[in-house]
Simulated assay, not measured.
Amino acid sequence: MPRNPRNQMYPANEDLPAAGRGSLPARLWRIRAELLLTAALGLLTFTFLSAAQHGHWMPFIVLTSAISVPAATRAGRNWVTAHIWCVVSRHRLQRTCLETTMHTRSGRIPLVLWITPTRTGEKALILTRAGISAAEFEAYAEEIAAACWARTVNVYKHRAWAHLVVVEIVRRDEIPGAVSPGLDRFYGRRAWISMRPDVEEPPDLLTLPELSRKLALPRVG
């Protein structure tokens, strides 16, 4: 895909502040998974020390069983692996914004509101900052795919709210089976428009008359 001026939106000689700035809540939200993991490890350590001190091992056994039993199953391991990839992709997305011009002149980067696993990779819901749009994410699609070690990246914008962007990271062929419902369940697929004009909407997004016209099906009755 030919590059466009959005890839060089700032003059080369302009002295911009360091990217990555933001409010404290935004910075905490970016590392929410790490904070939750740290809290879980702290709870496990506290339970172990309490059990060792007072001899009450049942709470520690119950807590470790709740963690180890799901990890011993294939579905549990797949769930853990899928969500680890979500954390990795979130950090790689943020790093791409820092290393490119996908940040404001004040150094603020888009906020990854949510990221969930899909059958082909991950899907991230992103809140853009003032001065950044879905078109810029599409312009940097190749950089995002390379940063996330993926095959390709699909970018979608919301039909009503242009500040909401979905970045779909495709890293493998579709894997059958149950996975997290992800954004499709919470936001629906009808609300998003592909940034690539050559990509058609999936058939399940079309009404029956539209589908009949596309397939040139004869009318019944």
Rank of each mutant, 00 (worst) to 15 (best):
A18I: 09
A19L: 03
G20P: 05
G22I: 12
L24V: 15
P25K: 01
A26H: 04
L28M: 14
I31W: 10
R32G: 01
A33S: 09
L36R: 07
L36I: 12
L36S: 05
A39L: 14
A40D: 09
L43Y: 05
F46A: 15
F46V: 12
A51N: 01
G55L: 09
G55C: 04
G55R: 02
H56P: 00
F60N: 01
F60A: 14
T64S: 14
A66G: 15
S68K: 01
P70D: 07
A71M: 13
T73H: 01
A75Q: 11
A75T: 15
N78G: 10
W79D: 11
H83W: 15
V87K: 01
V88R: 09
V88K: 06
V88P: 00
V88L: 12
H91R: 10
R92K: 08
Q94V: 11
Q94P: 00
Q94W: 03
R95F: 05
R95N: 07
T96I: 11
T96F: 07
C97L: 02
L98I: 15
T100D: 03
T101G: 09
S106R: 14
G107S: 08
R108N: 13
P110S: 05
W114H: 12
I115L: 07
T116S: 11
T116W: 08
T118I: 08
R119I: 01
T120Y: 07
G121F: 08
